[in-house]
């Protein structure tokens, strides 16, 4: 039997995904151990798991290097890849929000000179330009986005909010909610058809658990 390859986003989502697959009886517990391996195999079920950077999961799946992927909706919205998004896994729940100092709340809809810092420039543009019809300046950052309003790099940020603790510690708060987020099961368009039976079985197995 051909291996079915599943790409997981390194970090918290991979841990939750591994728990899910282990509950279904698939052998991928080795991924939770301290190892530098990037490929893990369950020989009995002909499954292969890859650990890749979150932003790369849709790429692996789009090009068929992986048949299936587990990745946050934020990554899918940002990357806009050509693939099937077949299941909401229900875990990794959080929100994409516009955040900033409290005094920005009132200025948010009236200013025309606002700068928005984000790791998600597409999501930010889609929200401000697409939905709110505002032309604003978007500044792409690689991380620690909360610094931007504190240092005067931008007025507000667009970022993922889980508990809001990091925001509070930096004197920022949620100003507007952009959209809810959670982990998604994505499938390569060709694999969905050629490996239909195994993939639909896996999907219904997961559905029965969530």
């Amino acid at each position: 039997m051909k291996y079915l390859t599943i790409a997981l986003a390194k970090g918290r989502l991979a841990e939750l995904s591994v728990e899910l697959f282990m509950k279904l009886g698939y052998d991928c517990g080795e991924m939770l151990t301290k190892t530098r391996k990037l490929i893990f195999t369950d020989e009995t079920h002909a499954l292969r798991f890859l650990l890749v950077k979150a932003g790369d999961v849709p790429t692996y799946v789009e090009y068929g290097a992986a048949d299936i992927g587990v990745v946050g909706r934020d990554t899918l919205l940002e990357e806009g890849r050509n693939l099937y998004e077949m299941l909401d896994l229900g875990f990794g729940k959080c929100k994409m929000c516009v955040c900033g100092p409290a005094e920005m709340r009132e200025r948010l809809n009236s200013t025309s000179t606002m700068r928005v810092a984000s790791k998600y420039p597409h999501i930010a543009a889609e929200y401000f330009y697409g939905r709110k019809n505002m032309n604003i300046e978007i500044i792409k950052l690689g991380g620690s986005v909360e610094l931007a309003p504190l240092t005067g790099l931008s007025e507000v940020i667009v970022d993922i909010v889980e508990s809001g603790k990091t925001l509070a510690e930096n004197g920022l708060e949620v100003l507007e909610e952009v959209c809810p987020l959670s982990a998604r099961l994505i499938v390569n368009r060709v694999s969905a058809k050629t490996e239909r039976e195994r993939i639909t079985r896996l999907i219904s197995e997961i559905r029965s658990l969530i």
């Binding site: 909706r73 693939l83 099937y84 998004e85 299941l87 909401d88 998604r184 499938v187 969905a192």
Partner: peptide, 9 residues
């Protein structure tokens, strides 16, 4: 086209 079950929901 994206067979996006959650979004269709």
């Amino acid at each position: 086209d994206k067979k996006s079950v959650p979004e269709i929901d």
